[in-house]
Amino acid sequence: MKYRLLFFNLFAGICAFAQSFETGLSYNYLYAGQWDNLIQTYNFARPFLVEKQPLLKHGAQVYLAYRFKSEKRISHGIQLSYSYFRSSAENAGFTNTLGFSALNVGYILHYENETLLKRVYAELIVAATGGRMQRRINNAPFEYDQKRAKALGIGGNVGTKLGYHLKINEAVRLSPFVLLSYTPYFYAPDAEVLINQTRGLVAEDWTGMLNAQFGLALKWK
């Protein structure tokens, strides 16, 4: 009975802040094992580059989300996000820059419970990911065979977000959040071609990516 009550309390109550539009910006930390391995191999194999290529770790994400009106503590919505990561190494005559951008289109399951934890909300985000990695040498896109070098890829993304509402006025809230997500970037056949200029020598065609984000969202009722 106690559990049933708790369940009822958790899921059946009135949602305090349903139907909203939001946008956010976050710092995005990336951990992609295969790519780390590729960049490490790139550095290992090229002693003529004294400054080592940093691992592709730091980036930013912006997103737009819309949450549908709901009378429940659970609501749902859609989200579009764009992330960009960059790694650059400056060597005499050779500045090598890797840039990775990812676009996620996803579904949000939003939960908040004013009675249980005031102002706190949690989200589960499931998204499809499309990404593109590019290389620049000396600040110009790297081209060969008269084509710009790029590595495209697709994957899925699942993340959990925890946020806190700060009320600015009746309609607007500011919301710091943390988000942890995992992206099985299951098809990225040219990442090795772009990073290490080989295929199948040191990495597989996929990578798992773990993201940790810290950001701030602005929400409108």
């Binding site: 290529q53 940093p54 597989e204």
Partner: peptide, 26 residues
């Protein structure tokens, strides 16, 4: 081995938040 390292890294990304992950092998 490389993928085991990656999978291991995903489960226990020890170096995840350290600012100085190795950018070179060995």
């Amino acid at each position: 081995q490389a993928s085991l390292v990656s999978v291991g890294g995903l489960l226990f990304p020890s170096g995840m938040f350290s600012a100085c992950r190795k950018d070179d092998l060995f």
